[in-house]
Simulated scan of single mutants.
Amino acid sequence: MTILRRRRSPLTVEPVTEPESESDATTTLLPLFPLQTVLLPGTKLPLHIFEPRYRQLTADLVSGTVPGREFGVVALRSSLTREVRGLDQLYEIGCSTVLREAKRLPDGRFDVVTQAQRRFRLTDLDCVSAPYMIASVEWVDDDPVAPAGDMAERLAVVARTAHRRYCETAWRSDDWNAPEADTELAELAYQLAADCLLPLEDRQRLLEERHPLRRLRIACRLLIREAGFLDTLGAVPLPPGELTDLGKPASLN
């Protein structure tokens, strides 16, 4: 499996019909795709699928064998892991994603695009019942919060400013997008982080935070820190289009 990082060169794909919404059960079974990356809700994940077990998963998603065409992505705790055998090798909190587009290649590989949906907590792992792993999960919602009013608005402005500073330093103008003005507070931190090359542990921290204001504050601090690093070092990360193999060494695909 290769994570396709170039957002500005979309795949030519065959559309997959949108799945009907499922009821939000407390627990469920999800096919599991461990990666050396953290998937944040609302973001898109393009993948190149080539290993047999994940080709089978993709075929099951396309055919509707997997309910809702939804599977889980969870980060590996160690980049040295080559085969997952227990929960201790994975972070507890991951994110589900839904297959949106798929193109089957002549040799059986797939190029796919998925859309991240909702967070979950791993409770059990089945490594033998199917070619790919199946996880028992509990859905994770945000904590209820009282209206934050002006404080939330001010924090959002500061976070957006930090995001713009980072992106204008790191990327070309067509390599990033500012979140829409009407983006909900609960989603803003995820969208701001999506354009930035934050370390895995920082992205996991954002994923696990259940208080929307606290999550946005964390994102703001991380973006200010990273922009400061860029200014201090006088260096910029590689353009997104040149980062296509970041997940490859630790991939289970």
Rank of each mutant, 00 (worst) to 15 (best):
R6D: 14
R8I: 05
P10D: 02
P10M: 01
T12P: 11
P15I: 05
E18W: 11
E18A: 15
E18N: 11
S23L: 05
T28K: 03
L29Y: 12
L32F: 09
F33T: 04
F33A: 03
L35Q: 08
Q36Y: 15
T37R: 05
V38P: 03
L40W: 00
P41K: 03
G42Q: 02
G42M: 06
K44M: 14
L45V: 12
I49L: 06
F50S: 05
E51D: 09
R53T: 01
R53E: 04
Q56K: 02
Q56W: 03
T58I: 02
A59Q: 10
D60E: 09
T65C: 03
T65D: 10
V66E: 00
G72D: 02
V74S: 03
V74P: 05
A75P: 09
A75S: 13
L76F: 05
S78E: 13
T81P: 05
R82L: 04
R82Y: 03
V84T: 08
D88C: 06
Q89N: 12
L90D: 03
E92F: 08
I93N: 05
C95Q: 05
S96N: 03
T97G: 09
R100V: 06
E101L: 07
K103Q: 14
P106K: 02
D107V: 12
G108H: 04
R109P: 06
V112I: 15
V112L: 10
V113S: 07
Q115H: 14
Q115L: 14
A116D: 02
A116L: 04
R119E: 08
L122S: 08
L122F: 12
D124F: 13
D124S: 15
D126V: 07
C127Q: 10
S129H: 11
P131A: 02
P131T: 01
P131N: 02
Y132Q: 01
M133H: 01
A135N: 05
S136G: 15
V137R: 02
E138N: 14
D141M: 13
V145K: 01
V145E: 12
D150N: 09
M151P: 01
E153H: 14
R154A: 11
L155Q: 12
A159H: 03
T161S: 14
A162E: 12
R165V: 11
C167A: 08
T169H: 14
T169I: 14
A170D: 06
R172P: 03
D175P: 12
A181Y: 05
A181E: 13
L188W: 02
Q191D: 12
A193Y: 03
A194R: 04
A194I: 00
L197R: 13
E201T: 15
D202R: 09
R205Q: 13
L206P: 01
L207C: 02
E208A: 06
E209L: 00
E209C: 08
E209N: 08
R210H: 04
R210T: 04
R210S: 04
R214C: 11
R217T: 11
A219D: 06
C220H: 07
R221K: 10
R225I: 04
G228A: 11
G228C: 08
F229M: 15
F229K: 15
A235E: 15
L238C: 11
P240T: 00
T244L: 14
L246C: 09
G247L: 11
A250E: 07
S251A: 15
